[in-house]
């Protein structure tokens, strides 16, 4: 950012010089000549010049050149000579925080505090009720600004951002919405919505569930509590009562066991995995029939997929973590 500010001022300066053979302001020209061909040099950095590693368009801020100085228009104001005008011309950075260590961050911080001061009187809602937003992490912000922002400072800024987010959504001004956009992640939690399940013409709702290495596909139809797993009855397929219960747990916990018939295809893994994969599949297909049951099903623990899997074996270990027996020699 600082380099950008610099280049903007340099452009001003260079434009003001125009086609003059002898530069008046030597300092400026020197800088300009130096920085022209590579255009990456940073003025206040002792380290070698480098670009930001991430060059995605969305992260890099757009570059805007400074408007040219129109000498003709200025000259008509009664000034006789360019020379006198140039003498009064001073290269000023666009931002007053240009000479600070983290100019963009400082700008952001000041802008947010000003905004907050402006809208401080608007009604707020409790943070719990505020819209859920995934804010940029400090690493993402650092990459965006290319400045070594300190964690604590960043959190102070985010405190203001969250306070702005708590403004009652019915009265939130447009400028606040625009300002907050800068601190949101590109993708928000609710952005990707799964396709809603459908009940087909035969009244079946399908659900897929996985656990460990098992996967299950369940179809749920209205009925009176019959369960078929791979064409067998529940008791034939699962010898343990525990497995049977966990297989239909979503229905049992919501007291829907006698309202639906289930048929399931399940494959892979062992009995526990299959039973719990079935639990997930049945829960999902139940949610197609009755979406309002989601909180109840979630409380029963049938919505979240259990991501645990067998840990891989490592080289030099006997198992995933076990080390070979220590031998003295």
């Amino acid at each position: 950012m600082s380099s950008r500010e610099l280049s903007r001022s340099l452009w001003k300066a260079v434009d003001s010089l125009g086609s003059r053979s002898r530069p008046q302001c030597e300092w400026t020209t020197r800088r300009a000549q130096k920085s022209f061909p590579p255009s990456v040099a940073r003025c206040i950095s002792t380290t070698t010049a480098r670009r930001a590693d991430v060059t995605e368009g969305e992260i890099q801020e757009p570059f805007t050149a400074a408007p040219p100085i129109r000498f003709e228009a200025d000259a008509e104001d009664g000034k006789k000579g360019d020379r006198s005008m140039l003498r009064t011309l001073r290269v000023v950075p666009a931002s007053p925080s240009y000479f600070s260590a983290k100019p963009t961050f400082t700008d952001d911080f000041l802008a947010l505090s000003a905004l907050l001061r402006k809208v401080a009187t608007l009604p707020v809602i409790s943070p719990a009720e505020a819209p859920k937003v995934a804010w940029k992490t400090i690493f993402q912000y650092r990459i965006m600004t290319n400045e070594p922002v300190k964690t604590q400072r960043y959190h102070k800024m985010m405190h203001m951002v969250r306070r702005l987010n708590c403004i009652n959504p019915s009265v939130v001004p447009e400028e606040v919405t625009q300002a907050l956009l800068r601190y949101k992640k590109a993708s928000q939690p609710g952005d990707i919505k799964p396709k809603p399940g459908v009940i087909d013409e035969l009244g079946r709702a399908k659900g897929v569930g996985r656990r460990k290495t098992s996967s299950a596909v369940a179809w749920l139809v209205e009925g009176e509590g019959e369960v078929l797993v791979n064409g067998k009855s529940l008791s034939q397929f699962f010898g343990r009562l525990h497995h049977r219960e966990s297989a239909v747990w979503a229905l049992k916990a919501t007291q829907r066991l006698d309202k639906y018939n289930v048929f399931v295809l399940v494959q892979g893994g062992g009995l526990t995995g299959q039973a719990e994969a079935m639990m997930l599949a049945v829960a999902k297909s139940l949610l197609v029939h009755e979406p309002a049951l989601k909180p109840a099903v979630r409380r029963a623990g049938c919505v979240t997929r259990d991501p645990r899997k067998v840990e891989r074996k490592k080289a030099g270990h006997v198992k995933a973590r076990k080390m070979p027996t220590w031998v003295k020699r």
């Binding site: 009176e224 509590g225 019959e226 529940l234 008791s235 009562l241 239909v248 006698d258």
Partner: peptide
């Protein structure tokens, strides 16, 4: 009814031994 239905389902559609 609820208890009977639940056990009936868990017993594999009314398998009396189960």
């Amino acid at each position: 009814d609820r208890f009977v239905n639940e056990k009936w389902s868990l017993a594999g559609m009314g398998n009396i031994g189960e």
